[in-house]
Simulated scan of single mutants.
Amino acid sequence: MRHLLADIQSDELTEWMAYEQVTGPLGPDRGDLLHGIRTAVIANAASGKGRKAVPKDFIPKWDHTQSADWQEMLANARALNSRLGGTDFTQGGGRGDAG
């Protein structure tokens, strides 16, 4: 960030910010968005009736300020699996014991 601020003027940075608002995210965020769109299309084509997947379902959240414990991660995976009509093959009554 320091290099960016040293090499770019405020007006040019503002122009790039405005450009991104019109065209969508630049850099890795754009890749995440495009991947989310593709994955949602594939998931919807392969699923039956019910809630349709949207790109946001497949775009990771990169906020690492609070790490989730394994139970929370498992609950998130199960929720996404359920929304997409998947089957939960784990054993143990939802405790996360794989079998």
Rank of each mutant, 00 (worst) to 15 (best):
82 S>N: 10
17 M>T: 03
41 V>L: 14
49 K>F: 05
62 W>D: 01
19 Y>L: 14
32 D>L: 12
89 F>T: 04
68 A>V: 05
31 G>F: 06
14 T>W: 03
70 W>H: 12
94 G>C: 11
77 A>P: 00
57 D>M: 09
99 G>L: 14
20 E>Q: 15
80 L>R: 07
26 L>C: 04
29 D>K: 13
81 N>W: 00
30 R>S: 05
10 S>T: 06
32 D>E: 04
68 A>T: 00
6 A>H: 11
17 M>A: 14
28 P>Y: 08
16 W>L: 15
29 D>P: 00
34 L>P: 00
88 D>H: 00
96 G>E: 05
58 F>G: 04
87 T>E: 01
23 T>F: 13
12 E>Q: 14
20 E>P: 00
94 G>M: 03
47 S>L: 07
8 I>V: 14
34 L>N: 00
20 E>G: 11
36 G>K: 05
65 T>E: 04
78 R>Y: 07
88 D>L: 13
70 W>N: 12
71 Q>W: 13
20 E>H: 03
41 V>W: 05
32 D>C: 03
69 D>N: 15
96 G>C: 05
3 H>M: 12
17 M>V: 01
83 R>V: 02
99 G>R: 08
31 G>K: 12
49 K>T: 13
48 G>E: 06
31 G>N: 03
4 L>V: 15
28 P>M: 11
39 T>P: 00
46 A>H: 06
3 H>W: 10
60 P>D: 11
6 A>K: 13
68 A>H: 01
87 T>S: 00
50 G>Q: 05
40 A>V: 05
1 M>E: 12
4 L>F: 11
80 L>I: 12
16 W>N: 05
9 Q>E: 15
1 M>D: 12
91 Q>Y: 07
67 S>Q: 11
98 A>Y: 06
6 A>F: 11
33 L>S: 11
81 N>M: 08
18 A>R: 11
62 W>I: 07
30 R>W: 02
83 R>A: 12
13 L>W: 07
26 L>V: 13
34 L>T: 05
61 K>V: 07
85 G>R: 07
38 R>Q: 11
23 T>K: 14
66 Q>V: 15
58 F>T: 01
5 L>H: 10
36 G>T: 05
85 G>T: 01
92 G>I: 07
79 A>H: 07
80 L>K: 12
14 T>R: 13
35 H>K: 10
68 A>I: 01
27 G>I: 04
89 F>W: 06
31 G>T: 05
